[in-house]
Design a protein around this nucleic acid. Structure first.
Lengths: 153, 153
DNA sequence: TTTCATGTAACTTCATATAGTGCGTGAAAT
DNA sequence: ATTTCACGCACTATATGAAGTTACATGAAA
């Protein structure tokens, strides 16, 4: 089953933005992410509507983070991209008339809802500031090659 | 993101088989599941290889459950279909050179692995016998229309 | 008024889950 | 023996959705 990488992508973009001083353009972020500028704009659209980032048009424009990194959790980002399903599995049919399927669905739903609740709870505990700190720790650990912080090779 | 319904499907098929006395053909199961016989054979292929069901060719052939329902857990069934990914989300890139992405991946992986472990643990606690019992309880509750146990409308 | 940058819609790939077809194999009934 | 039944499997077809791309409009600064 193919897995959604939007959450991973948004977090990645946000951390790259956080490493820069002024506004960052979609083009620059696309280069860093090895993708297309329009994809960046799509990814950040939800974040902008949720107030986590700000976008400016024209000369000197681009994207900036609108809040303190310590005030944005992974759960916030997850919500901003529309709370896509976390579970790769679903029921064959929802609201089935078949009682066998109802029994199966009930058993699966119970477990899946527990797992989703656990995930959301974990997401709420991790802020972008923590992720940035982890990144900087990795930077320090890779002391021999300190210029590769943006290496995507 | 589209969700895999194989686990739901296999459990459904197994419980339908359990309700019948002798062998059940792929055709009969396909009718009950409103799908194609080949789909049934594919679904049950992994279960056969794992020894949970038995298949017989020719006249009077079909599928039978090879073990006691109390000895088959949802985790067994999950394993038999190849342990497909349970999480709908993955990392943009695995083993990235980018330290930002490494930090993001690490944070996500931690949460996802926890959630997966929780799910597997729950699956291990539910046997097919329990699911069958739940089904029969639903049958009893729907006492006014007792002939609909195979209704898929 | 030219250049830069976002906002969006429409379109194209591309991956892949699911469904379906055709033919081969083996077992039982006649 | 031969017919019928049922699974096994390789292959094709279809549908869905994410990601990538193009095109153009909007708005701001040089």
């Amino acid at each position: 089953m193919k897995r959604d990488s939007r959450l991973s992508g948004v977090l990645h973009v946000l951390l790259h933005m956080a490493e820069r001083a002024g506004p960052t353009t979609s083009d620059q972020l696309a280069k860093a992410m090895q993708t297309h500028p329009v994809v960046i704009r799509r990814i950040l659209g939800g974040l902008r509507d949720a107030g986590f980032v700000h976008s400016e048009k024209g000369h000197g424009g681009g994207w900036t983070i609108a809040r303190d990194l310590a005030d944005i959790t992974m759960a916030d980002v997850y919500a901003a991209i529309g709370r896509p399903s976390l579970m790769a599995m679903g029921n064959r049919t929802e609201a089935p008339g078949c009682l066998v399927e109802q029994a199966v669905n009930a058993a699966l739903d119970t477990s899946f809802h527990e797992a989703e609740a656990l995930l959301i709870a974990r997401f709420e505990q991790v802020t972008l500031a923590q992720l940035a700190a982890d990144f900087h720790a990795r930077m320090a650990a890779r002391s021999s090659t300190p210029a590769q912080e943006h290496d995507h090779g």
